[in-house]
Design a protein around this nucleic acid. Structure first.
Lengths: 233, 233
DNA sequence: AATAAAATATGCTTTTAAACATCCGGTCGC
DNA sequence: GCGACCGGATGTTTAAAAGCATATTTTATT
């Protein structure tokens, strides 16, 4: 790992910037309980059932968080982007993880040791409220997502997923290509469908000139139409 | 409303008991911003799109929180029981409500005015952390629920809903009858299925002697079998 | 470079649950 | 008392998506 030469100081500052209203002594406390590591594409960061060891932050790369469902079918419940936290829900709820986190590309993740963070939260109401707000927002997303995944048809679900990926990771310089390269299987697991149907529907969109495909590269040609499919399909 | 003679003092104490670590001056502040009202069965407490006015607490009765989905099909996202809060997610996320709350039976609800509560939270880290924890737990439920509703088959979804209702509202004195009386339509909206299918599946369970039906009264005869259907069906 | 393994593509079949159509029984309002 | 309406029950039809089979292409491994 050492040969990757992670710039811990930069990572530390970037992570701390996510916290608002951090007192100097709190920052030093975090520094003393802060670790960084390099994660290769495909590696597991934590597994369903494990005890959360701390607050995980993605400094570089992309991570999917998924749950294994009925008959081994995975559902992606979250896509983490840098710089942002993930895997904190279980820690705050005082539960074991209920999902698995896997790096989608080579990534750098940082961890703030659990007890250290909890101690800071016990006295910093501002910071605690900030996290509370994030959780409330996320719960809203989750509720919306439930409706989408259960009620929209395949085309609508996939269209929404593509728009979600665009909104989460942004576009390449061409202003059209979604800045994340998922396998058809991951797209399917994000959209609650089989891999076959993801492939089929994707090539359907392609025929209708809504998107353009080049391997895992997805170019959104007609965002308006994609939005319409998402909302009415 | 006055003729219903709500015991505001008892309600106030019961609601405050939900908060831990409340300072005396905070309690008085809440008392000054505390209102109670009587809600008839079928009445709407708040609607999707409205601005949250405060923290709502159910003191007596039962309330369903649902979202209208594609083609007017509702999905129940939460069932509130006394004494407990609901409708707080939107307030904490600084959003408008994304769901509608309706009383399932005659109920008494109390409201703590929004700004009053937020002020208290700004300085009471303990209390804020407590709410944070609840939200984290709820987000876990929501994620689990998404998997259930998308991946389980009709029988599994309905079985899980029945067990969920039992766990939420408990059983009558006979130790078998679920202590909530939902219409077939509500059961369907809880389980992501059409009303016809809820009726059909329910009478299926009845034929298999897993449950016993008497109108809206549902008796769980074989909890073990119901659990198995939920997990494997 | 050769081979194996994984990912993608596509056609066909089957299953599931929605949609639709009645029908029944109770309740409400007039 | 009558008709309208609502909730519940049940059978039939239809559509959507899963499942399965099989190519083909790409990527990884030796």
């Amino acid at each position: 790992m050492a040969h990757h030469n992670i710039d811990i100081q930069s990572a530390f500052e970037a992570v701390c910037a996510l916290f608002h209203n951090l007192q100097p002594h709190e920052k030093e406390k975090i520094r003393a309980n802060f670790t960084c590591s390099y994660i290769k594409r495909g590696e597991i960061i934590f597994r369903d059932g494990e005890i959360p060891t701390g607050l995980v932050c993605l400094y570089k790369g992309k991570v999917k968080i998924f749950k294994e469902g009925v008959g081994g079918r995975d559902q992606i419940v979250r896509m983490a982007k840098p710089v942002g936290f993930f895997g904190y829900r279980a820690m705050f709820a005082d539960e074991n993880h209920i999902a698995t986190a896997e790096a989608l590309e080579d990534s750098i993740i940082c961890t703030i040791e659990r007890d250290c963070l909890l101690e800071i939260l016990k006295t910093n109401a501002d910071l605690t409220f900030h996290i509370l707000k994030s959780l409330a927002t996320e719960l809203g997303f989750s509720n919306n997502r439930t409706i989408t995944l259960t009620q929209k048809h395949i085309r609508g679900r996939l269209a929404e997923s593509l728009l979600f990926l665009r909104d989460t990771y942004g576009l390449e310089d061409d202003e059209q290509t979604i800045k994340v390269y998922l396998s058809r299987e991951d797209l399917a697991n994000l959209s609650n469908m089989t891999t076959s149907n993801a492939i089929r529907t994707l090539s359907g969109f392609c025929n209708e000139s809504v998107i353009e495909l080049d391997g895992r590269r997805i170019k959104i040609l007609d965002a308006y139409k994609l939005d319409r499919i998402s909302n009415l399909g």
